[in-house]
Amino acid sequence: MIEESREVSPPAQRLAVGLRGVRKIFGDVVAVDGVDLDIRDGEFFAMLGPSGSGKTTVLRLIAGFESPTAGTIHLGGDEVSKRPPFERDVNTVFQDYALFPHMNVIANVEYGLKVKRVSKAQRRERAVEALRTVRLEGFEARKPGQLSGGQRQRVALARALVNRPKVLLLDEPLGALDQKLREEMQVELKAIQRQVGITFLFVTHDQEEALTMSDRVAVFNAGRIEQVGTPAEVYERPASAFVAGFVGTSNLIQGEAAESVLGRTGIYSVRPEKIRVDTHLNAEVPVGEHAAAGTVAEVVYAGAATRFVVDLDAGGRLIALQQNLQTSSMDVLKLRDARVRLAWRREHEFAIREDVPPGLVMDGPPTTVG
Rank of each mutant, 00 (worst) to 15 (best):
E3K: 12
P10D: 07
L15N: 11
V22G: 10
I39F: 10
D41A: 14
F44R: 00
G49I: 05
S53Q: 08
R60K: 14
I62D: 03
S67I: 10
T69P: 01
I73Q: 12
L75T: 03
P85A: 12
F86H: 15
N91E: 12
N104D: 15
I106L: 15
Q122C: 00
R123N: 02
R123I: 01
E125D: 05
A130I: 08
L136H: 12
E137Y: 02
R154M: 06
E172P: 15
E172I: 14
E172A: 03
L174F: 12
D178W: 11
L181T: 06
M185G: 05
Q186A: 09
V187I: 15
I198K: 14
F200M: 15
F202M: 00
F202K: 02
T204A: 11
F220W: 06
G223R: 06
E226K: 11
Y235N: 00
Y235A: 01
S240C: 09
P272T: 13
I275A: 11
H280C: 10
V299E: 01
V300Y: 03
D313I: 03
R317H: 09
L318T: 01
L321K: 00
Q322F: 01
N324P: 13
M330Y: 02
L335F: 00
R336K: 15
A338F: 00
V340L: 07
R341F: 00
R345P: 01
R346D: 15
E347F: 02
P357V: 06
P366G: 15
T368C: 13
G370N: 05
